[in-house]
Design a protein around this nucleic acid. Structure first.
Lengths: 136, 136
DNA sequence: TAGTGCTGGTCTCTTTTTGAGACTCATATA
DNA sequence: TATATGAGTCTCAAAAAGAGACCAGCACTA
């Protein structure tokens, strides 16, 4: 019986239906997780965990992200405090993105998940194939 | 110098621009992570890690998910092998969802991340507020 | 001196994904 | 007979993502 189970309901429920207030920020897990569980965030965190990168470098490193989503995802990661953005007065000016301490702290557990993914890719693919075979 | 850094590039790049083939499945991390990094997956994993739930119970537990997305997310989690779906011949029939062994295995690292989120919610909120204050 | 490329973006338009909510179907209950 | 139930599906509107043109200032080249 660990305590996570006891407090699950309060972590999930963000607000009661009906009158009062209630905001998504009332659920810490959702508030934080939804910022990093989107298509590009974990990928960019992974890149920046290696070393700081400039905008164009990231774009080349992740060739199928659009400039629009790269800008926006970096902006969101910066807003949540995971990423630091620094402009250098070169001509033309260059911008470097790096992880903050908070970003590195968050990358710890994220990295565990990424490693799980790498290790269990085969099992997931197998499950998918099995599922697709029976449902057709 | 750990090995994650050495192999970062191969994990990120899914295909070279230009001719040949190349598939998203060539990048294990992306192939697996994109299945679980969406708005509802981690939340449902969290619920099912507690105990098996039926469709309607999940809907009540997560009041702001639409039936459409609940159906679809559960379907995707089942396809990737994390969730087991069992139909009971009651009238009307009821359906129970539970984690598979693979699902429980994946929930290990995911749970670490969720705990980080809970613990660092304050820091993230503070970062957001600071960011919003300077940018206006 | 005009043309080209580099930087890190923004703007607009189209396509895809999500959300809201009505509808189904067979049974049970009031 | 009217209504509720469980687990969805279907349709339509709204939001988000993707594609790709465009922008500014400066350096280098022809």
């Amino acid at each position: 019986m660990d305590s996570k189970i006891v407090s699950l309901r309060s972590k999930l429920e963000i607000y009661k239906a009906g009158s009062g207030g209630g905001n998504i920020a009332d659920c810490p897990v959702r508030d934080v997780i939804q910022g990093i569980s989107n298509k590009w965030s974990s990928l960019l965190m992974m890149a920046l965990a290696e070393k700081p990168y400039r905008f164009g470098e990231l774009r080349r490193l992740v060739p199928d992200i659009s400039q629009r989503m790269l800008t926006q995802t970096l902006h969101d990661l910066q807003r949540d405090g995971y990423v630091h953005r620094e402009v250098f007065p070169t001509k033309p000016p260059s911008v470097e993105y790096s992880l903050t301490d908070l970003g590195r702290s968050m990358f710890g557990p994220l990295h565990q998940l990424l490693q799980w993914a790498e290790l269990n890719h085969g099992a997931v693919r197998a499950a998918r194939n099995a599922f697709d075979a029976t449902e057709t």
